[in-house]
Write a protein that binds this DNA or RNA. Structure first.
Lengths: 342, 342
DNA sequence: AGATTGAATGTTAGGGCTCACAAACGGACG
DNA sequence: CGTCCGTTTGTGAGCCCTAACATTCAATCT
């Protein structure tokens, strides 16, 4: 398994061609100010002519920084995670960094060492897209072990802000979950049921909080996994109770399952049942009926994470954690309950 | 921007600790058979004790292979692409390779050199998830320039199998598109309209072929982008014609848009309009009505792509291109037209 | 016994780059 | 005119490994 090595053009070749020392070439490719303008031009011409591309590996080996970020996540096909990844990649590419992806298995318990083993070496920059138990644990493992450079995204399991005393970019899931819950209560629903995605405690807590604040009963949340199917089944169960008129869902995929369940159970949405999702997936606006949901800027989250990582690498002091405010998007799946008694 | 370098444990430290030469340590970590069992144990103990992790960079620099794959794609949030990426990552991790992602902008025209610039160096292993014009062009650019190791996934724009005379894993989009079209014709529809995603010529060609084979008129395909919104608007236009009774969509996201358009236009699905999607996204089965679509094993595709790459790196001869057969999944959005006249 | 193997280990030379210096050069200054 | 200084360039060492070759040593053969 060895790539052909037809002796690539290296820095010495360029130096010879330009009639300077290899170090001067190094300075040019690193934008050092200590090169005379004329020399720089000469070298750049040589680089051009020879088609020289600096060897990333050698640079990293010699210089200490690989300019590469490892992104840890569990599921690249989840809307939030993949959008966040895109955002990271976007910002990283602009900054000349390479993004490696390491996909973890959500069902596998990882020892801290297993998490660290996914990095090129101890201390290398990493971003964790922390959206479930596995990735949240990974985030903690890195934070504990890494001499530097871990940035988490998403907030994961973080129950409160104390844990956020770290390099973290997060969406304020909690506040917006409360907001979505209040939206349903304001429409006249007696209470709101919750289909929970694994982890994402903040969403659950926000929902709970809003119910409590309004003095409403807090029904037990229905535990789902990430699949639409699990939400469908959970909702079918929930809908046996005719008093269930509003369901908040951990994400849009679950919301789709809930709507389908209502359909099968013969309940009209939103007439008999209101459903609110989370994430504002691309398809949400085009569901029939169109999904009321929470819009989250995952791409911006990813970009923010990389920028944070960069400032950390640059030795900047840790900024206050950013809690990005999502936005409730009211569409067609939420409405007052039909037989309102007030 | 420099990672702290507290002088990591290296191969020489291990060698000293174990009382052998560094080369012997190298042999141990490379599973060379030329090490006595006792020595191997000694060395392994030293590695364990010192927490030694071989430096990936140095290995690559010295040995010639970085054991890393670059995946080129345009949109990690597209279901197919992200699933494929997961599949690649899965197989690559198992084989001890690192996966780097390079996300291209679908709207930007890339010169061949720009594509190559995304690789760590000329000739380094790459997999292109070729599903649109940009990535298909990237695939061609790599094929032309790379001394080795390009594997494409998905088939992209490939109009026929001649182009497939390369290291390629693909889904037989063409055959299954024809199959889906026949499904609709068999239900009694006079013809089938097509909402086209950018590129993916095979799907369009399969549809065309099936219509021609059945002696049906071939309406002009409606060009959409990847967004549900574009499909929605295209479908709204299409539905002004009351004779439109069946629409095949380039993917499920478009199908959702078409169903929504039907709803807005006051046409029942599937009573007045049949819709068939592509990809079998997780939500497809739970739409109301549940989406008839084509199931594609993207994850398997990704794994297959990596295995192919590996065998290429190992110097294996090119196998015959694999055209994986997808499967039509009939659910609730396809039915006979209401006013059938036969 | 001496020569011949073969396995196990060691030695040396890079790979392509950056870092920390040292050297050369020109001008400003006393 | 010599000294000092800043700018620009060059030199050498070293990052951590592997490839290729050299060496050692015990077992085998004649």
């Amino acid at each position: 398994m060895s790539t052909d090595r037809p002796r690539r053009v290296n820095i010495v070749d360029v130096a010879r061609h330009a009639g300077v020392s290899h170090q001067t070439v190094s300075r040019v490719i690193n934008d050092s100010p200590l090169v005379a303008a004329a020399t720089r031009r000469k070298v750049q011409a040589a680089i051009e002519e020879l088609g020289f591309r600096p060897n990333r590996l050698a640079r990293a080996l010699a210089g200490g920084t690989a300019r590469e970020v490892t992104v840890l996540t569990t599921d690249t096909s989840l809307y939030g995670a993949s959008e966040t990844l895109s955002g990271i990649e976007d910002a990283a590419r602009a900054a000349g960094h390479t993004v490696s992806v390491s996909v973890m298995n959500p069902d596998q318990p990882y020892a801290d060492a297993d998490v660290l083993a996914r990095l090129p070496h101890l201390g290398s920059p990493a971003i964790v897209i922390a959206h479930d138990a596995t990735t949240t644990r990974a985030m903690r493992a890195l934070r504990a072990a890494q001499p530097s450079t871990t940035v988490a995204t998403g907030g994961g399991d973080l129950a409160d802000e104390t844990e956020a005393a770290d390099w973290l970019v997060a969406l304020d899931d909690r506040a917006v979950a409360a907001r979505a819950t209040r939206h349903l209560l304001d429409l006249g629903h007696a209470t709101v049921h919750y289909l929970a995605i694994p982890s994402k405690a903040p969403r659950r807590l926000g929902w709970e909080q809003a119910l409590r604040d309004a003095g409403r009963p807090v029904p037990p949340p229905a535990a789902c996994d990430w699949s639409t199917a699990s939400a469908y089944h959970a909702a079918i169960g929930l809908l046996e109770d005719p008093d269930v008129t509003a369901i908040l869902c951990g994400n849009d995929d679950l919301a789709v399952g809930a709507v389908r369940a209502a359909h099968i159970a013969g309940r009209a949405v939103p007439g008999d049942l209101s459903v609110v999702g989370f994430d504002d997936c691309p398809y949400a606006a085009f569901q029939v009926p169109a999904l009321t949901t929470v819009g989250l800027d995952f791409r911006g989250l990813g970009r923010g994470a990389f920028e944070l990582l960069r400032s950390k690498l640059d030795g900047a002091p840790r900024p206050r954690p950013t809690w990005r405010q999502p936005e409730l998007i009211v569409r067609e799946t939420s409405a007052p309950p039909r037989n309102r008694t007030e």
